[in-house]
């Protein structure tokens, strides 16, 4: 029985968070919006782990790649997606190469793309859960 997918959205721009929430309203997902990487980490430590982390790249304080790096180290099973209007290509390449990222979404993004990536992430998560169960 599939549980509701928990998605952590990190962006300093609240409108972005709203758009994401609205775009995913038709899916069986629960979106937790936070305004910074620090809030995101705090949220992850205090509450239940989430299935997907969707982060903006450029934010006050910790940037998206660094944040997702933490996430990959502490919660490696969480699917990490970077969403950005501007990216340091080298850093992005490095991140992609080290498989710290599941996907990269450039701003502005298409709702379809986002839904497709989330769907993939859910599928991936389901497979992993299945393997965990098997173990």
């Amino acid at each position: 029985m599939p549980e509701t997918i928990q998605i952590l959205c990190v962006d300093d721009e609240s409108y972005i968070l709203n758009v994401i929430r609205r775009q995913l309203c038709d899916l069986d997902v629960e979106v937790h919006p936070v305004r910074s990487a620090e809030d995101g980490l705090r949220f992850l430590r205090q509450t239940h782990p989430v299935h997907v982390v969707l982060s903006d790249y450029r934010m006050p304080g910790m940037d998206g790649i660094e944040f997702l790096g933490y996430v990959s180290r502490e919660w490696p099973t969480v699917t990490r997606i970077l969403l950005s209007g501007f990216t340091d290509a080298e850093a992005l390449q490095e991140a992609l190469e080290q498989k710290r990222l599941f996907a990269f979404l450039p701003k502005p993004w298409r709702a379809e793309e986002l839904k497709k990536i989330i769907a993939e992430a859910v599928e991936r998560n389901a497979e992993r859960s299945l393997s965990e169960v098997t173990i």
Partner: peptide, 25 residues
């Protein structure tokens, strides 16, 4: 452009996103 891109892309991002949402709605 690069520095402005983020600032532009953010609003464009949510405008476009909202428009899509609006279309859905």
């Amino acid at each position: 452009a690069a520095s402005v891109a983020h600032d532009i892309n953010n609003p464009i991002g949510f405008v476009a996103g909202n428009l899509e949402v609006l279309k859905n709605y």
